[in-house]
Amino acid sequence: MSELRGIYTLWQREIKRYLRERTRLASSFFQPLLWLVIFGSGLGLSIRSSTGLNYQEYIFPGIIGQTLLFTSMFMGISLIWDRQFGFLKEILVAPISRISIFVGKMLGVSTDSMIQGMIVLMLGFLIGVKITLPIVIKVIPLMLLVTLGTACIGLTLACFMDSLESYGTIMTFVNMPMFFLSGALFPVNNLPSWLQWVVYVNPLTYGVDALRIVILDGAYVSSFPLYMDLTIIIAFDVFMILAGTYSFSLRK
């Protein structure tokens, strides 16, 4: 009971801090917009689609996946931030387990990413994707599943790093390949086979595929069946939560 209250208060803190950072909120609103409107319409005009969708519609779920990944990876830095500014000590000496601290942090970061993801989802009307209530209801739990795993990647990396700068570097190394090789921007079926393997081990591939199935609602011919996407995402989440809590408990 007291552990749950601890998790709740840590979760609440992450969200409060996130919502108070107005410039970050604004910038993370514009970035997906640039991808969608400029990149999407620019590139969309010069390539012929093999998917039967217009290019902007095609990348829209991919951009949501990108937003979830980038935001949760970026928020992982808060762990290093807390350590540098001393606040982590206050949490570490509280009568609450390391697991609860990690879970509180993870849920907070995931919620932040989901808020961001929901904002991008609402931008769908700009490019003519119809966002209906059933889609929203299905997309929320799916976003949570995708972002739990990515939040844990960020937090796990942060467990092993002491400086904000080195985290920033590593973050780019993880973000970019995961994003580009997830099928967010182009279909992965036509890639050379060595690259296809990288795509298949990338957990975000299944996230983007599932998002596409749910958001484009039938118009999209999926790479994998939805149940397979979900199974792999959940397996990855479980693995990352275990890896993350273990890494966090290793630190003094």
Binding site: R5, G6, R13, R20, F87, K89, E90, I96
Partner: peptide, 22 residues
């Protein structure tokens, strides 16, 4: 060394502490 969260208000820091300590 300092260990308060400066992005929260004074009261919020205390509330969090109260929650963490049950």
């Amino acid at each position: 060394d300092p260990s308060v969260d400066d992005r929260l208000t004074g009261k919020e820091n205390l509330e969090m502490h109260a929650d963490l300590y049950g």
